[in-house]
Nucleic acid binder design. Sequence first.
DNA 1: TAGATTGTTAATCGATTAACAATC
DNA 2: TAGATTGTTAATCGATTAACAATC
Lengths: 229, 229
Amino acid sequence: MPLPTDRLATRGIPDATVARLPVYHRVLSALQEDGVTTVSSEELALACGVTSAKLRKDLSHLGSYGTRGVGYDVEFLSYQIARELGITQPWGVVLVGVGNLGRALVSYRGFASRGFRIVGLIDAHPDVVGAQVAIGDENHHVRAMADLREVVRMGNASIAVIATPADAAQEVCDRLVEAGMTSILNFAPVVLSVPEGVEVRKVDLAVELQILAFHEQRRSETLPEVMNA
Amino acid sequence: MPLPTDRLATRGIPDATVARLPVYHRVLSALQEDGVTTVSSEELALACGVTSAKLRKDLSHLGSYGTRGVGYDVEFLSYQIARELGITQPWGVVLVGVGNLGRALVSYRGFASRGFRIVGLIDAHPDVVGAQVAIGDENHHVRAMADLREVVRMGNASIAVIATPADAAQEVCDRLVEAGMTSILNFAPVVLSVPEGVEVRKVDLAVELQILAFHEQRRSETLPEVMNA
DNA sequence: TAGATTGTTAATCGATTAACAATC
DNA sequence: TAGATTGTTAATCGATTAACAATC
């Protein structure tokens, strides 16, 4: 039997494409707010910082949502991407670690506007447990690790964010997995080990700076050489 | 003339490798603190969350720093990676936008330990300008946008971090470029446009959550189907 | 010498790109 | 119909992987 080439097999959207869909979605939302109704791949690509060929290729994995000779309907395409990403319904998020970073994340308005709702705050430190924290216009109070299961259940959370110090992260991660979490975003600078079926994504603030520093170093090494030549 | 295959041409390290070097470096630092002196590619790869083949391939771009039959000297390899990344000397960083996220970044200890020193804080808001903020054991005060050039010069900064709201980011970015910055880390959810020769990297907290949500959606769609079959 | 582990090779895989036929 | 722009094709490029000869 040859490889399946039917439409359903196409559901496997390349990782590189998935990583760009949120960017397209945000730019489309912004265009929609500005009252723009139609956009060409050329215009949209420019605003998203990609080439139009890449954009069209990416969108082709979702379906044929454009009109030749015209472009894309902003509202329609925005909805189709949101549907593909699964953010037409808000996702409940539990945040573990209510320190500086945790509080910054709580007050970050970009979450709510992109389909996420923080439904619980957890911290291991007795001084922090019980503290009132404003999430949007609601007041939440910080719960203890022991309350994790209940917080997850009550808030119907399916995504967790770890914003603890590095040395606590693996322990917290284990508890989250026990409590049934299968999607974890990790801000602690450690590689977490999780069982099959659980996905961890890592955001490392220092790594990004290090990559910048590397390229900066290369620029300052090679540019003067060119000038000497 | 054929393509150059000498050692100097090898200086072009693949982007994918560069992005992993900081991870290797951090894990090596941790091993060093634990008193581990030698490590095999198999062990190191496990701790870094990659395969040993990928690790060895990555390291091969830097040079031959291992010993066949033995492994890698932790301290030596750590130093070689640090040198390659350009973090044997600390880099001066200017932070623009001292709101919730900005303050969280200031108090993030991972920067100092990975070769970065915040040498200046800038904010556009008059209420914030002049405020005292502790960076490590020094007290800095927040300066106005107008002082940018001076802050950059005094601190010898070559990397800037934008932690402002989205609508201010492009304006701030333009000012940074004017002031001579060529490396910018952007936390604002907008695509910044910069002239040739300036590099912007973007960290988007919501994008990572959206990718998690997408995969989570796929898991909850496909797993039940398997169970029904 | 025998066992272990690197550094490199070559095959495979996935992502990007440019060009253009299809079609509004 | 003529002009514009999509969706797709095929070529190219870069990254990953597995296997193993080199060598400690």
